[in-house]
Structures are given as C-alpha cells and as structure tokens.
Write a protein that binds this DNA or RNA. Structure first.
Lengths: 342, 342
DNA sequence: CCTCCTTGTGGAATCGATTACACGGAGGAT
DNA sequence: ATCCTCCGTGTAATCGATTCCACAAGGAGG
C-alpha cells in the first residue's frame, strides 16, 4: 500500500508538502497542490489512519458499549449513534456486553487500548473498575439510557415517569387493580427507576404493590417467561403484567400463551420500550416509547462536545405512552367502543 | 497515559526489555520480568494498540459491512461474528450500509483506512469500485450471505433451494396454486437466487409464476407493503405471498391487515429468514430459517484463515423450513385444533 | 589462560503520518 | 542598493511501540 513517501517521490516534493496539501494547509502553492493530487490519484493513495492517530493522538473514533445488541431498542440506539457520529466525522466501534459485566469490561478495555476519543456507555451493572478508572482519568465519556450514580459523567436518558403514570392511569381506568411488574436488574438504574415510577404511580391511585407482584428479571426474554409463570402460580395472580423492557415482555407473552391465556381478555400486558414488532404481535402490545433516535443523537453530541473541549451536558427526554390492544382497550380510533364488559 | 518509556524508567530497564517481557519473549530474566510487571501494575500501563499496529502492520481487527442493522437477521449475524472473532483474538468494527451503495462504500473506505486485517462483506449491490479494488489488491476478504459473482473471494452463505422446495411442497399440499413472491433487489445474489429457487420449485409441480406475481422489493418493510398492495389489486390476487426476507414479510403483513384480510384464511404468508418475532406475530409466520450463528462463525474462520495465510474456503450451509400457522396448517403440535372459524 | 558460545540487555532504526523550525528567494519600503 | 517580510518548501523530531544488531558477562571447552 502506497505511503506518503511514495506520493512525495511521485510528485517530486517533500512529505511535508504532501501532508500540508492533503490537509488543506494554506501555505501550499496551487502548482504543488495539483502535483500532489495527481500523484495521489496515480498511486491510489489513502492516508494511513493508524499512523495519523499515533501522531495526532486522536482516532476520530467513538466507542459504544451497549448491554445487548439483539434488543431492538439498543440496535436502534446504535444506529442513530452511528449516523450522528458519521455526520460529525467520527466512526463508531460497538461493543456488545450481553448484560455480562466481564464482557463489558473486556470491551471497555480494548476500546481504551485503541485510544478511542470518547466512550458512550450503557452500563450493565454498577460499573466496572476499568470504567471508573477511565472516568476518573478524564476519558471523555457519556452514559446513555442507564447510568451510574455518583460518577461525574453526563447522562443522556429518557424519563419514563410521566409515561408510566399515564400507563397506570390507563390501566386503572380499564378497571385493573392488581398490577404486577417484571423488573430489570436492581444494579441498573433503569431497572430500579421503572419499578419506583410504577410504585409511585400506583400509590397515586391508592394502590400498593405487594412484593409478590415485583418479579426480578434481567432484561432477557427468558426471565420474563420465568417471572410471569411465577405470577400465574400465585393464589391471586395479577390482572396486568408490566414488563420493564421489550424482551421480557416477549417472554411474558410466551408464558401467557403457553398457559392458554388470552391477552387482554384473561390478563393484560404492557411493556417499557416500544419496538416496531409490537404492532404485529398478537395482540399488539401497549408500550412506553422512548425517543430512541433523539437519545442517540443527543448522546453523540454531548460526547463530541466533551471531546472537543466544550461542556457536554446531560439530557433527559420524555418517553410517551403508546396504547394498543394488549391492555383491553382498542388503540384510539374513530370507531365506537366495541366492548361491553359488565 | 503512561507509555512504555515510563514503564522502562520505573523498572530501571530499557524499553526493549519491557517490550520483550510484555510479549513473552524467552530471553528475559525472571528478575527483569518481575520488575516490569511491578512497574506496569504501579503505573496502570496499557500498551497503545495504535502504536503497535503501526509497527507490526496488523490491527487484529476485522471489518464487517452489513446491509441493514435493523434487520434481526443481520443483527444476529453481527453478534455471532463478533463472538467468534473475539474467541480468535480479533475485534470487529461494524459498518451499516442501510442497503445504500454509497454508504457501503464509505464504510469500506474508512475500514481500509484504518488498516483492518480483513473484511467481511454482505454487498448491497453489484459491488462498489472500492470493494473491487480491495479484493484485487489482496485485502483478505470474505463474502457472507450475499456475494458478487466473478470476484475471487470465498463466500459463506446458506443454500435455501431445498428449503424453498419444501415450502412450495407444503403450500401445494395445502391446496394453494397461485403463489406470488416479493423479490429482493436483482443486484443482490440473494435477491435473484430466491426467485429462481421459487420458480424452479413451482415448475416441479407443473406451475408457472406469472410476471405479475413477481413483485420487486428492496428488502425493506415498506416495499413489502407496496408490493403486497399491488398483488391485492390484481384481478386475480395470489393465494400465497412469499417474502424474500423478514422485513418485507412484515410490510406484507401490514398491508394484509390494512385491507382487513385474515391470515391464513384469506391469504397465506411465508418468509425467507426466520427470526424470534415470527413466533409472536398474528399469526406466527412460516419461514425459512438460515443457520445464522453457524454462518457468522464460519465466515470469521474463513477470513482469519486468509489473514493468517491459510487457504480460507467457501462454505454453504443448508437452510430449513419452519412451519407455523401463516400458511393454513397449524404448526406440528400434539394439541387438538382449537380454532372453529366458520 | 584464551577463545567461543550463550544469555540478557540496551541502542537505535523503523512504521507513516504531522508539524516546529530553518531557509532561500521574491517583493516592498526606505 | 539594503534590509525586512512573507511565502513556499524542506529537514528533522516526534508519537509508542517492535525488533535487528551489538555488546558485556559468564560458563564451557580446549
């Protein structure tokens, strides 16, 4: 592969001039510039990003460590992150932690070894030592979706509190009183927050959440299935199951179907995180939709701000309730109400 | 960030010895090794991968350019690729081409600029100039899922011919005779192959596919919707719609639902590519499942073989039919038929 | 006792870029 | 004519690793 030396030789100039010409430095004569461009063309030269990074101490690369690529929410997030980064002239390297702390650590380490300019993190657990070291060492960093309390890093996330309140009001209006939640891991902020918001919203209606109605999941489909089965085995099973993420909702749907229960007639289902597929499930699932694209873009902007020396602020965007049929009421439509339950 | 020089100073040794100690070179005394390790520990030193890559001319990084991250098939592929690569000591940088040739080119270019050791490609179109140049220049490369005829690069893919034959037999047995297909872009091999396999399978039953029953899609949901609407507007609409990928199947499902048609009673639906969500749609979708994980792993192994100087062979794995309810027959299960539609 | 080989170590070149500094020549001011 | 500025260019240092080569010390063999 041709190097800058080859270009210099071909153009009959020094490497310094070639470099300057290629980087748009002002003090290069038009004639020299032309010769450089011609040589570049002739040799099919492309600058070696590795060498450039070593010298300039910047890679123009962002690292993104997400908890689970197979989760459509994170896929969409990754996509919007890459788009915005590209628009700002950065590349993105994605690391998939698969909800496993040691994998998360592995990715943080290799990304740091590669001297990425900044790190976008959606921490799996309470924060690994590597991550905390990096934060302390001043590596530009932004948390997205989830975060770690007590670490001084901007957080870009979505606030589901209002949406959860809307959801609970919706459920209450439909006559549901026994509401259960499949929670995420307590080590994650989103795991805790969603339970808290749920409990607070219920309390506003004078309802309490018994411990038996809080199932411990891990944001994966299997745990949704398992927890739902536990709910159904209760002497007094809940009337509604609210899953704290979309994969657990999927697991719950499986479990309900396996027992031959009809949704929403026998039991209602709702989920945090809206995804395109929820429109096509049987029945379509009522969900709380995060502004995923906006979240990804805001996170990248905050991170790039940090990298380029600007403040880089935390952002919180509101989530919103999307009503479909899984809780018993048809999605808002002009047609008259069909149901005539006693 | 501490460099090897700092470690050398701290340990009272030369950088050469430090480098040797860290790379397991035999001629380093146990005493020196101990001091190096102690210094590394004390300084929290991590080798700079950028500098190492420049010197050794290898990045231990693979590039993966896929056509669409939001497509669960490719997400799963990316995941298995990353896993296998990690097991072999490589990282993966994913580029999402979004079915857009110019984006694909952009990613190939930046990946090459970063001097990745090898490239895994699922080409969007007939192959961009950059890609062809790279192949000719001897960049280790492997095509996965799709490929470009006439380019001397190993191909790791799945053969759907048998599965398509099984599908058509299944449909025929159910009494369907008017079968339509939503094809992928003719520029992609998978786009063409699936149509050819479909046509051949029909011919084996003495059936022809009229041109009107071959709709041109682009592997995106919207095109599935559009093409399906076209089918339904025909004087004699098909009895079955077969979508050449999962997203177009989703679009088709939308279109059918929008017209108030019941699947499979009014019209049957099948898809190429099986994904977890097809179990949960209404109705569950009969699909042709590729061995995605095995495909990703085989592709990485072939690529790493090439990189490390071994041959690196093409691999073709069989796909298989997964029957669910969307074509009219319940998935094989011991339970009696519950439904009693008039 | 001298030579030769082995072992462990250090000095310095190298990878491919960027960039501080030096320098020669052209042109303007005095 | 002399001096001072710019302008365009080249030389060389630098980034952080790896690795070739040289070399010193010590043991074995003659």
């Amino acid at each position: 592969m041709a190097s800058i030396k080859d270009v210099a030789a071909e153009a009959g100039l020094s490497v310094a001039t070639v470099s300057r010409a290629l980087n748009g430095h002002p003090s290069v004569s038009p004639a020299a510039r032309r010769r450089v461009l011609a040589a570049v063309e002739a040799l099919g030269y492309r600058p070696n990003a590795v060498a450039r990074s070593l010298r300039t101490d910047q890679t123009r690369t962002l690292g993104l460590v997400i908890s689970d690529v197979m989760n459509p929410y994170f896929t969409e997030l990754a996509r919007s992150v890459e788009e915005e980064a590209r628009a700002l002239g950065y590349s993105v390297i994605i690391g998939n932690a698969d909800e496993r702390p040691e994998l998360q650590d592995h990715h943080v380490t290799t990304l740091l070894d590669r001297r990425i300019d900044g790190l976008l993190l959606s921490p799996t657990d309470g924060g690994s030592p590597r991550m905390l070291d990096a934060a302390r060492a001043g590596t530009p960093m932004v948390f997205v979706d989830r975060w770690i309390p007590g670490v001084d890093v901007p957080v870009v996330r979505s606030d589901g509190q209002t949406a959860v309140r809307d959801l609970v009001a919706h459920l209450y209006r439909l006559g549901h009183r026994r509401l259960a939640i499949i929670a995420g891991p307590a080590a994650t902020t989103t795991g805790r927050e969603r339970v808290d918001a749920f409990r607070a919203a219920l309390r506003a209606h004078g309802l309490e959440v018994p411990d038996a109605y809080i199932g411990q999941g891990d944001f994966q489909a299997d745990s949704g299935r398992r927890v739902t089965e536990g709910f159904l085995d209760l002497a007094e099973p809940p009337e509604v199951v609210f899953a704290a993420d979309n994969l657990m909702a999927l697991g719950a749907l499986d479990a309900l179907r396996a027992r031959g229960l009809r949704v929403p007639d026998d039991i209602a289902l709702a989920a945090f995180d809206d995804i395109p597929w929820f429109v096509h499930t049987d029945p379509p699932v009522t969900a709380i939709a995060q502004p995923t694209g906006a979240l990804g873009r805001a996170a990248v902007r905050a991170l790039v701000d940090r990298i380029e020396g600007r403040p880089g602020e935390s952002v919180t965007l509101p989530a919103r309730l999307v009503v479909r049929r899984s809780c018993g009421e048809p999605a808002p439509s002009p047609s008259p109400v069909r149901r005539s339950t006693s």
